[in-house]
Design a protein around this nucleic acid. Structure first.
Lengths: 230, 230
DNA sequence: TCAAAAGTGTTCTTTGTACACCCATGT
DNA sequence: ACATGGGTGTACAAAGAACACTTTTGA
């Protein structure tokens, strides 16, 4: 690039979008909001923001995640850049898409509601503005792959969870049904969850044992090149 | 974004970089060139280019790949965006990194030489300009994962190849040694390669059978949700 | 008493892994 | 004759897949 050419190149904007996955114990969901301003007022879309040229992206994404989750230590990862020429009528905008996972509890549900945002079921995503449907499809694929190899499923669950909840989460993310006995065998074999003395009887007449994720053990295993693999 | 704010955001540039993997039958390599202009003249770096705000990225990346490979139908995939604030002294530049795989034959070797570029050994990558080392590390991880699940290794090999060559490729990409017998068992079981009546005696006193990738069969299998998996 | 989810084992098949020797041939 | 890479089989271990019944208890 020659000095006089700078104007030809430095006239693009950066935005980030966030595919936030939440699991309510029953269903996997994605957070969406309705657009207020031009372009596309009234359309559904992913939580997004523009980035100024002197702003670091990681910190802005961290803030975006916090605003929508009210939690720290959330798993966040970049998906990729979406950069088609005509994505956005305002001009050339490169959208760098991220995804994150959060435990979706009642408090968070209320918080999102107060902000005018909604947790939409994983399998019922409506038509969105821009290319956000494409971004969600990509995020779902990534989640599928990650969930197979790393226990990120646990980051979607409350601290204490039943095996059924865990199985439902995996079934949704991987989009297939699993055998209850084989699932339990595999999970217990993995040594990554520990029994608690708590029970849950909200979902059934018979009460179910609650388990929790053994994060310490996971750190140990993963540092030895451990593979989870569903 | 309000209309008056456009200038605050639309002053970023897009660049693309390419991690081009080539396999010469013996060693896996990455194409690098030496920078001529500011910033960082003389430094090694990945083939890269700036993108104008009205240019489509896929087509420009396609051209970048063609310029360096002289081949069509190359496997290309986006890695992710690298977008730290101070990557580039000229201003805020978002680098969208791609990787591609190519069969590295003598003709291509010469072509690269003529362009002043070099195919550097996978394990001997020097310090590069910008954040290009980080990009290569990311690309290596991606290649490792991809090579495990899809037969993209074949896109790195000549049309006809020996099992030893294939094994060397996998060993480099996955960074571990494998047992010859088990490797052959697995490869033949996969049904993805077919024997030819050609032989190669360049590497050994005894001549080795040449095989080729059965692309048709792969299409069939992969449409049925086939998993390769090393 | 019955509906709804919890919990539990065995068998068979498939896949992975460890391991050592002879072969063909160019020098 | 020997060095170099080519080529082959078996036995054991581990993981995956298919499959059905009993238990608890709130309504």
């Amino acid at each position: 690039m020659f000095p006089g050419e700078k104007e030809i190149y430095f006239n693009v904007a950066i935005s980030v979008s966030l595919v936030l996955f939440g699991f309510d114990g029953e269903k996997l969901r994605i957070l969406l909001r309705k657009k207020k301003r031009e372009p596309f007022p009234g359309a559904w879309l992913l939580p997004s923001m523009y980035i100024k040229s002197d702003e670091g992206i990681d910190s802005k994404v961290g803030k975006l995640v916090f605003v929508h989750t009210q939690k720290e230590h959330i798993f966040v990862e970049q998906l990729k850049a979406f950069a088609k020429v005509f994505r956005n009528p305002l001009g050339r905008v490169v959208n760098i898409a991220y995804y994150a996972t959060v435990k979706l509890d009642d408090k968070l549900w209320e918080h999102s509601k107060d902000r005018g945002e909604e947790w939409i079921e994983y399998s019922k995503i409506p038509d969105l503005a821009f290319d956000h449907n494409e971004i969600i499809d990509y995020a779902k694929e990534r989640l599928k792959r990650r969930v197979k190899r790393r226990p990120i499923g646990f980051y979607l669950l409350p601290e204490h969870f039943t095996i059924s909840q865990l199985q439902k989460l995996y079934e949704t993310a991987l989009n297939r049904e699993m055998d209850k006995r084989n699932f339990r065998k595999k999970i217990f074999n993995s040594q990554l969850i520990v029994e608690t003395d708590l029970t849950d009887n909200s979902a059934s007449r018979k009460s179910a044992k609650l388990y929790k994720f053994d994060e310490e053990k996971y750190e140990k295993l993963s540092s030895k090149g451990y593979d989870f693999l569903f």
